[in-house]
Amino acid sequence: MGGAGDGCRPAGRVGLRGGGATGPDQALTLAGTYVAIAHPLGHSQPAWVAVILGGPARFLAGRAGFDYATFARVSRDLPIGVLVLVALTPPMLHMPPLLPAIAATAVLTGIAIADAARGRAR
Score class of each variant (00 low, 15 high):
L78P: 03
C8H: 15
I111Y: 11
G19A: 09
V35L: 15
A4I: 09
T70C: 13
A112H: 13
L16M: 08
P24E: 04
A31R: 15
V82M: 07
L85Q: 07
L60C: 06
P97K: 11
Q26A: 14
H39I: 05
G42W: 06
R120P: 00
S44Y: 10
T29R: 11
L41T: 12
G12P: 00
A106Q: 02
L108S: 04
L60H: 02
P91G: 01
I52G: 09
G42H: 13
A57L: 04
R120I: 14
I113L: 10
L53A: 01
D77K: 10
G23E: 08
R118C: 01
Q45L: 14
L28G: 02
A72V: 03
G15R: 15
G3W: 13
P10E: 08
G5M: 03
H94W: 06
P46Q: 11
A69I: 07
A69C: 09
G42E: 10
R13P: 00
G110R: 06
R58M: 15
L78Q: 00
P96K: 07
G119Q: 11
D6A: 12
P40Y: 13
R122P: 02
F71L: 13
T105K: 00
R73I: 04
L78G: 02
V82T: 11
T22M: 07
G12S: 15
R17D: 04
G19M: 07
P40N: 12
I37P: 02
I52Q: 02
G23A: 15
G20R: 09
R9V: 08
P56D: 05
M95H: 07
A106M: 13
Q26E: 06
V51L: 15
T29Q: 10
L41S: 12
P91C: 07
S75A: 15
V86K: 00
C8L: 15
Q26L: 14
A72K: 01
P56H: 10
L93H: 09
V82Y: 01
R118F: 06
P96T: 05
G62F: 07
A101T: 06
V82H: 01
A21Q: 08
A21G: 03
G20D: 13
R17H: 13
A121S: 14
A38C: 14
A69H: 05
A117T: 09
I113C: 01
I111R: 03
L53N: 04
T105M: 07
A31V: 10
G55N: 03
A31S: 09
W48C: 02
A61E: 02
L98E: 08
Y34M: 13
F66C: 11
R58K: 11
R17Q: 08
G12Y: 14
V107D: 00
G19C: 06
Y68W: 15
L28V: 03
L28F: 12
M1R: 14
G32D: 08
R58D: 05
V107Q: 03
V49G: 00
R63H: 11
A38M: 09
V107M: 05
A11K: 09
A36E: 04
P24W: 08
T89D: 00
G18C: 06
G12W: 13
V35M: 11
A64P: 08
R73M: 03
V74T: 02
G7I: 01
R17V: 13
M1Y: 08
H39E: 14
M1A: 14
T105V: 13
M92K: 04
D77I: 02
L53V: 10
T29W: 12
T89W: 06
Y68M: 03
V107E: 00
R63Q: 11
